[in-house]
Amino acid sequence: MSVTAIVINILVGLALLLSFIRDRKKTLKGLSIAWKASRRMLPAILLVIVAIGLFLGLVSPAWISSVLGEGNGVFGVAISALLGAVLFIPAILAFPMGASLLQSGAGVMSVAAFITTLTMVGFMFIPIESRELGKRFTLIRNGFSLVAAMIIAILMGLIL
């Protein structure tokens, strides 16, 4: 369990306790809202978890590096951005990968595009997002995020 998880759990535990002391009925209502939302999202989350496992199991870091390292120009940025949008890699793995790519001579644009879409655009999460916020919201947000990520990457390539 990470430090973040422990801190969040302790804080929420305290908030729950405080809430329970102040107003038992309200707290129970809040818990029932929490339970319903969790139950609603669970199948989609399980689906995403298995899909991520399958994806990361099949796609090796070496393969991703080779794709990012090769990419040049607008095409390379687009490929990197798409790869980042589709894949889901935890930050703790993604950043060392980006650093080693930069060292081995990959373009700043490609690496920035990859990292920005990786964190900002979650194609994997679309089933959950559209269940909670609606398809329209989800498609618009992800579409705009992809464009914004590309612009960020291009600007970074120009600045750095």
């Binding site: 929420v12 908030a15 707290t27 209502k29 809040g30 809202i33 339970w35 939302a37 969790s38």
Partner: peptide, 10 residues
């Protein structure tokens, strides 16, 4: 989720 539930009632 609990945080969200509490937020929505308080």
């Amino acid at each position: 989720m609990v945080l969200m539930g509490l937020f929505s009632v308080w």
